[in-house]
Design a protein around this nucleic acid. Structure first.
Lengths: 218, 218
DNA sequence: GTTCCAATTGGAT
DNA sequence: GATCCAATTGGAA
């Protein structure tokens, strides 16, 4: 069973190799959902106090596609705050139904549906893919690995840093999957840095070309 | 004898021994065992599979000390003075006597004495060390890997690029030495880029602090 | 549409 | 003193 296998792989109990087994896309596609719209609102990075578990927001989709997708605004708002762990006082109703998968230390939870779409073709692709499963595009575009200022551009505003625990969980997950290639953490972190930079560029493109800016040759 | 051993190492008949990446060594990570680099097993395909210019037979150099290399070291005379004579004050006659060692394709010759000083502790150290054995500090400081302009600093003057053949020979040499870790060329090239940048910074420092700039507390 | 590359930088290690 | 890190960039792959 795919889910069971995915969980086993998670725990490193199934061997990986450079060319991983073809990803069970069918399972993911069965419940495929349209990517939620990314509100271009730069959210303020709220530092969690002492999070026990980092829960990645789920998409507004019914648990196993059996039920009609009951989209609640609460869920959408939650999706805006990917870095913030679920708050105790906010009971997540539909979110609780979403099957979650722990990665790394187990403190980071990834929606199973998203996890199944992660591409394991190479450590770089896997890292970038995992990032997209865990963070929203807007978060990736507005954050950096360390939150430190660019030494080459000291005047540029500093970006907030990605949640360190989640980053660490991603790194160890990729390391485990590709452990036969003895990946150093710094390699994976470099990919994360590049991914954030690329997302930042893409976001900038979209902002400067909202709609109607394109040239239309007749 | 050291020279004999060096030649053996060149042919890959002596292996990396302890020479391997001393481990990621990130922060708290720690405990990955330094796995011993495969059992000693001569597997380097130095054998003359092809008559091409690939590998210069070691024998052509071994007799040395009085015979010029069979292959004309065209590359090294290429204006960039990649290989400087050991002693500037001695005439070039001893330079012709200097035992040279071919690396990579065999088109690049390294003075044996410098080659013996190369550190093989890790692929990064080895790469930087090899660079210093092949290029002068001033060349490293004034050149870059590709010779392309920095995309982040389009106004900066473009540096000349290091000799592509020599770079390739360095890359393949390091790759061969550390092939058990399946190094990608891009990794090694990145080290070269960084080394050039570091040498450039150092040169800049020296230029701004010739002598007499230091503070002397009594 | 992404991903990758590498030049430059200052500080950290 | 040398090496490593990673933020930023534009264009190449």
């Amino acid at each position: 069973m795919y889910i069971a296998r995915a969980l086993l792989e998670l725990r490193g109990e199934i061997f990986e190799e450079e060319a991983m087994e073809p990803i069970p896309v069918e399972a993911a596609e069965a419940v495929q959902a349209i990517e939620p719209v990314e509100p271009a609102m730069p959210e303020v990075p709220i530092e969690p106090v002492e999070p026990a578990v980092h829960q990645v927001p789920i998409e507004a989709v019914a648990p196993m596609a059996h039920v009609a997708p009951l989209v609640e605004p609460v869920v959408l708002e939650a999706a805006l705050e990917p870095l913030v762990p679920i708050e105790p006082e906010v009971p997540m109703e539909p979110a609780a139904m979403e099957p979650m998968v722990p990665i790394g230390s187990g403190q980071t939870l990834v929606p199973l549906r998203k996890f199944l779409r992660v591409k394991w073709d190479s450590y770089t692709v896997a890292t970038r893919s995992l990032l997209r499963a865990v963070f929203s595009q807007s978060v990736l575009a507005t954050h950096s690995l360390t939150g430190k200022r660019s030494p080459a551009f000291l005047d540029r505003p500093v970006k907030a840093c990605l949640d360190a625990q989640i980053v660490e969980d991603i790194v160890t997950t990729v390391q485990t999957r590709f452990k036969s290639s003895k990946l150093k953490k710094s390699m994976i972190r470099k990919v994360i840095t590049t991914k954030c930079a690329d997302e930042c560029k893409m976001l900038r493109m979209k902002e400067n070309r909202p709609p109607g800016g394109g040239s239309k040759p007749p």
